[in-house]
Design a protein around this nucleic acid. Structure first.
Lengths: 193, 193
DNA sequence: TGTACATCAGTGAACGCGCGTTCACTGATGTAC
DNA sequence: TGTACATCAGTGAACGCGCGTTCACTGATGTAC
């Protein structure tokens, strides 16, 4: 039994990690298996020792935001069902840093068009991430809005929509305005300060 | 001078028209020039008699929603600065028909990821369409919100975000709920009934 | 009215390239003895 | 402790295919005479 299971796991992680970065930046069709493997320090041929297909890798890369995203691992020290937490998430999501950091950014922003044209597995991965996001917002609703899952859907849609559009505009000033505006109205919808 | 100018214009229109349909469904990389020309009843070789590059065609196809979209040509007989018109646009935009009619749908929904990775000209086309949409909403704001361009940006982001995500989900019921919810909150944000 | 012709819309082969996937192989590894 | 070996991670050539773009060409057209 040569090579440890740990070695295999490590290599696999390297591949998915780099795939996520590349897919986020270039989209599904813009990234080749060569690209992914080279970024992981390997060559083309070994890919199918780890993944059944490019599509399966894609689905896994989309899910990576949940385990390696900025929000899940680091709550900024705030209780995860408080208005402050919602505010923190919104401001982080719509920050200039997230706008620019496409590599490690949210796949909901970088890949929706791609995903709409992909297979079931990929859409399910996308859905899982989206539900995680709306779940966060729903958990932070208080007062008369507690448990208002529709409201959480709307807030998430607003945040995602604003970022998606912002990244597709040529006018940087308008993109900035769009982010700021979305922060403001997301707070308004959630009744957060 | 063989062939009329009209003939040339007609052929050009055929190409862009089919390109729009195909791009909306398959994205930039998913459509080949062969595909576009074949759909227009022509062959590959003639393409460059009409367009400088695939990218230029893409930009033009994105803009087509403005002249051939459902909203501009047919206002449903409602004054275009009234709350009723805003309501009509929102309901049309988030309708099941628009959800399913990807071919003739809004490029803001079908292509944002693609566009973010495209060149300046394409992003400018995207921006033009987006501004047209926010302009409609802004024109319909009344009462205390008149001229509140930020509010119009937020409403547009919400509508676009909801549709973009809805198309990328596997769960059809959740997609439907997302559309309905966006209709509700877009009305709320615009203070429209 | 009829015909020769310049124009240019449209053709289809070709160029150089990259893709996803397969496969026979090499060689590093930890284990058994 | 040292060595032979089974395992399998990783290699790189190959397959069959499609891409964006170029180009020499064909042939339908309306015009000039």
């Amino acid at each position: 039994m040569p090579y440890s299971a740990e070695h295999r796991e490590q290599t696999r992680k390297q591949i998915v990690h780099n795939a996520r970065r590349l897919f986020n930046r270039q989209g599904f069709n813009g990234v080749s298996i060569d690209d992914v493997m080279a970024a992981a320090g390997l060559t083309r041929g070994g890919f199918y020792k780890y993944f059944e297909s490019k599509s399966k890798l894609y689905a896994e890369a989309v899910l990576l935001i949940l385990s390696e995203g900025p929000v899940t691992n680091d709550n900024g020290g705030i209780a995860c069902d408080s208005p402050d937490f919602a505010s923190y998430v919104i401001r982080t999501y719509l920050s200039r840093q997230h706008f620019e950091d496409i590599d490690a950014g949210c796949p909901l922003v970088a890949l929706p068009g791609d995903v709409a044209r992909s297979d079931t597995l990929v859409k399910q991965a996308f859905e899982t991430v989206f539900k995680a996001m709306t779940g966060i917002f729903e958990g932070c609703l208080t007062d008369g809005h507690r448990g208002d899952s529709d409201r959480a859907l709307a807030i998430a849609s607003l945040c995602i929509g604003a970022m998606v559009v912002a990244r597709s505009l040529e006018d940087r000033a308008l993109a900035d305005k769009l982010r700021d505006t979305a922060v403001k109205f997301a707070h308004e919808l959630g009744n957060w300060k």
